[in-house]
Design a protein around this nucleic acid. Structure first.
Lengths: 117, 117
DNA sequence: CTTTTAATTTACCAATTGGTTAATTAAGAG
DNA sequence: CTCTTAATTAACCAATTGGTAAATTAAAAG
C-alpha cells in the first residue's frame, strides 16, 4: 500500500466512534467479535463490517480459534498518524495560528481607521 | 461540538489526500481558494467543498478580502488527534502488539504439536 | 454601466458508507 | 446426526461523499 493510501485508510477507519471504541477495547487485550459487539446497540454484521475496515487499514489482525475469530490490536499504522500530526504541533503549541489571526485582525482594523495608508 | 463529534469530523477531514495537501499548503501561509486549487486537477466547486469540510472540522478559518476568501490554518483540533493517538504509542513503540502475536503463535504451534495439553 | 475575476450555490451523478434482515458457513456439544 | 453458537456473506436501503457543469453572487476594473 502506498503510504498516502495507508494514511487515507487509517484516518478513515478512525473517523468512526464505534471503531475507535473497538480499538480502545482491544488495547486491553484480544477479544472475539461477540465480545466486541456487546457494548453496542448494533447487529453482528455491522460489527463484522467495522472489523473489515479496521483490518484493511492494518489496525487489527485476526486469528482463528474454534468458532471464534479473536481480534488483536495492531497499532503500527498509528505511528504514521502520529508522525503526520507531529508536523503541525508548532501550529497549535506556539499558537502560531491564533497569532496570525490576531495580527491580521489588527491590520484589518488599521486599514478601516486609516484607509489611505 | 461534543469532543467525540469533533474527533469524528477531524479524522474524516484528514482522510482525504487533497484536504491534507491543502493543510500542508496552508502551513506555509494563508492562500486564496484559487491558489489552493492550482495544484489539483479538480474543479473550483470541488475545492470549495473540501474547504467546507475542513472548516466544519475547525481546521481552517476564512477571511474576506475584496473578492478573495483567504484561508488560514487553524491547527487546534489536531491537538486532540495527537492526544488520542498518543494513548496507543506504547503499542507500536514497545511492539506490544507484535509480542502478543509472537506469543500467540508459539502457543498455537505448541497445541498443534502437543494437542493433549 | 459592462466586463472580468473569485468564489459559491444549485442540481445532478456514481460510488461508498453504515446500517438492516435473512441465509450460510464453521465448529463444538449432546 | 442434530443442535447451538460464532461469525460471515448476500441483498438491500438511506445517507453521505467527491466529483461535475451551469448559474449566481460579489467585488474590482475598464
Amino acid at each position: 500500500m502506498a503510504p498516502d493510501d495507508a494514511l487515507n485508510a487509517t484516518f478513515a477507519a478512525l473517523a468512526d466512534p464505534t471503531r475507535r471504541a473497538i480499538l480502545a477495547r482491544l488495547a486491553q487485550g484480544e477479544a472475539s467479535v461477540k465480545q466486541l459487539a456487546e457494548p453496542f446497540a448494533i447487529s453482528a454484521p455491522a460489527i463484522t463490517k467495522h472489523l473489515k475496515v479496521l483490518e484493511r487499514a492494518g489496525l487489527i489482525t485476526r486469528g482463528r480459534e474454534a468458532q471464534w475469530r479473536p481480534c488483536r490490536l495492531h497499532a503500527g499504522p498509528l505511528r504514521q498518524v502520529a508522525d503526520w500530526v507531529e508536523e503541525y504541533r508548532r501550529f497549535w503549541e506556539q499558537r502560531l495560528d491564533r497569532l496570525e489571526d490576531y495580527l491580521r485582525e489588527l491590520q484589518a482594523q488599521e486599514q478601516r481607521h486609516d484607509p489611505q495608508s
